[in-house]
Design a protein around this nucleic acid. Structure first.
Lengths: 219, 219
DNA sequence: ATAAGTGATTGACTTAAGTTAAGAAGAGTT
DNA sequence: AACTCTTCTTAACTTAAGTCAATCACTTAT
């Protein structure tokens, strides 16, 4: 379950990286040479649905940018998989707790769908930082933005009920509902599958509450 | 409610920063000049309990390192304060979602106790980055570690029940129980104060479950 | 010393989530 | 088409959290 379907995809990764970089403020722009060097360090890989990218116990050595598909982060607790994140198109994937401290990862990463990722090893990334400080600036900004996102996601999670979390998902990531099995979504929302089923029913029955959106989820 | 009790504390901030830096791997070490420049950009401020550091609606312009005391992050939702984080000694405090996007903050930061912070403006920080790339390396590593921490915290929160979260708090941050009012802790654990009260009772009554720790919380 | 205010606990009751078990719906196979 | 496997739903029941209201404990103010 760890094969790499190298496809006829090339250059895609770099342009996605450039888009990503452009988002990190116009301040930092890279030269041809820098882009070349980064491009050389990036590998584009295609994975089949079900492929495991990282296992609990391993040390994370690579970071990814999701070009196409869906990657699920989960823990294995008391004999159960507990899903804690879904990474879809344009989202960076990096298990920093493991990578920065060289500690074994506590979670798994696996592909929910056939997935295409842009891959860079942390090792190569470090080398690039030394050679091209502007690349490090860019990544520093990117990581700061990610940290901001995570702070907000955590706060949103703490301050809302399972039902509110589901409604929030409907608004912010409606695509997930048609890409991911519902029992994994339930776990992600912090409830059992049976409860999510009831939440969905409850919402459908409610008077005005966004029937349109609720329909989407029933497709 | 926004006064600054400048104290006779000086130099404390820098040494704390140095400790913080030392933790960011021995790889990057700074010269005298760099330390001087950083020191010049840092301000040590003492705040009285209750002081608000950042209000919802404001754009965050400063980041902090907690030298002494406790800062609470909270949202104001449906007429209620919802606590989402407590920052204590040696923890960095930065509202990146607001700072990096120059967007109004959605949360408040306020001092639960009399608090001493090392303060740097994001503006000065950016200038230092340009002059001293090694300082940026150091901060990049620091932010990556923080991101790793947040990823783990979020996952832990998603995968545990209120009772488990409370037990986890007992193990990882027992100090908070004696520093912070219980209704704020309840909010932080995602439950109402009455529920936390019942959780505590339940734990006390349970056979073997860490009676010693439970006692601490009863002090 | 008393009164007022805040925070924590308790009780009675409601609502929502967990549990267990049984079916229904769908996709894929042979 | 019949079968299998997985996912989702439903039902009945248990447990925990929300709600509302009263009380208790403690601190602070007058």
């Amino acid at each position: 379950m760890r094969d790499t379907n190298e496809g006829a995809i090339e250059g895609v990764g770099l342009s996605a990286y450039k888009d990503q970089m452009d988002k990190c403020l116009g301040e930092v722009s890279l030269t041809e040479e820098e882009l070349q060097a980064i491009s050389a360090a990036i590998e584009i890989r295609a994975y089949k649905a079900g492929t495991i990218l990282l296992e609990a116990g391993e040390i994370a050595t690579e970071c990814y940018l999701n070009l196409k598909g869906c990657v699920r982060q989960y823990y294995f607790i008391d004999g159960e998989e507990k899903t804690t994140f879904f990474y879809t198109e344009d989202q960076p994937i990096a298990s920093f707790a493991s990578a920065t401290k060289k500690m074994p990862s506590t979670h798994y990463l696996s592909c929910v769908e056939d997935t295409v990722l842009s891959v860079m090893s942390f090792e190569k990334e470090e080398k690039l930082y030394k050679k091209y400080p502007r690349f490090e600036s860019l990544c520093r900004i990117g990581v700061e933005e990610q940290l901001g996102d995570y702070q907000e996601i955590l706060a949103k999670y703490i301050t809302s009920s399972p039902e509110e979390r589901y409604l929030n998902l409907l608004e912010t990531r409606p695509d997930l509902l048609n890409r991911v099995p519902q029992y994994q979504l339930a776990s992600y929302l912090g409830v059992k599958p049976e409860s999510l089923s009831r939440i969905r029913k409850r919402i459908m029955l409610k008077p005005g509450v966004n029937v349109k959106l609720a329909q989407v989820s029933m497709t």
